[in-house]
Computed example of a mutant assay.
Amino acid sequence: MRVMRFAGVLVVAASLSACTAFNVATHRVSGDPVDAPGGTYRADPQHTSVTFSVDHLGFSRFVARFNEVAATLEAVPGAPEKSKLDVTIKAASVDTNVAELDRMLAGSDFFNAARYPDIRFVSTSIVRTSQGTGEVAGDLTMAGQTHPATFTVTFNGAAPDPLTGADKLGFSAEGTLDRSEWGLANWWPAVGNEVRFHIEAEFTKPES
């Protein structure tokens, strides 16, 4: 009897594996955001990254990232200018791969994460520049100061997730800012003031 049950489990597991493999192999996304279902989406933390780079003594661009990112997208595909994006990054999650530097950046001489734990971006306008690209402008708050920032966005695709069936949207974004505008000018000129951001994000529409 146990052998039969075990064999049954193997058959079910094999069927599920074959179904998953088929779903992934036949998975296709639409590159036109108009095809995406509207509604509220949340960033998938396992497939979303925010990295940034700064000049280091003219030798290279030093690359770091934030490990805790949350975002909500109110998507209106037929009228993207009506969509809304709200992003919150935990300042203390800055990750340079150098523990002492992480502590310095999170400390009172830079982000001051104890007093200002959140870095926040709230969109004020979204403009579609082509079928799959656009510009998102908004208010960026860091270390207690708020200034405008603009990011260029590429829409990568929309489709149901082949593994979960949930509606998903994918984006890439880039932007450049002058950190000194937010009062974060420490270590210049050894560290450049120009900060280049690169963002990869997958948004999932939760089941209602």
Rank of each mutant, 00 (worst) to 15 (best):
T133V: 07
A99L: 09
N112I: 01
T133M: 13
L101M: 11
R115F: 00
T133H: 15
T133F: 09
M104L: 11
R128V: 07
R115E: 14
D102S: 06
R128F: 07
F111C: 06
D102R: 03
S108E: 14
F110D: 01
Q131R: 15
I119E: 06
R128D: 02
D109C: 01
D118S: 11
F111L: 14
R120V: 13
V122H: 10
L101C: 03
V98G: 00
F110S: 07
D102W: 03
Y116F: 15
S108N: 09
D102M: 08
T133S: 15
Y116S: 08
Y116R: 05
V122A: 12
L101K: 02
D102Y: 00
T133W: 02
R103M: 08
T124N: 09
D118E: 15
I119Q: 02
L105P: 01
Y116H: 15
A113K: 12
R128L: 09
R103L: 10
Q131L: 13
Q131S: 13
M104H: 11
A99Q: 08
I126T: 05
P117Q: 12
I119V: 12
F121A: 05
R120G: 00
P117E: 10
Y116E: 13
E100R: 08
A114I: 05
A113D: 07
I119T: 04
M104E: 09
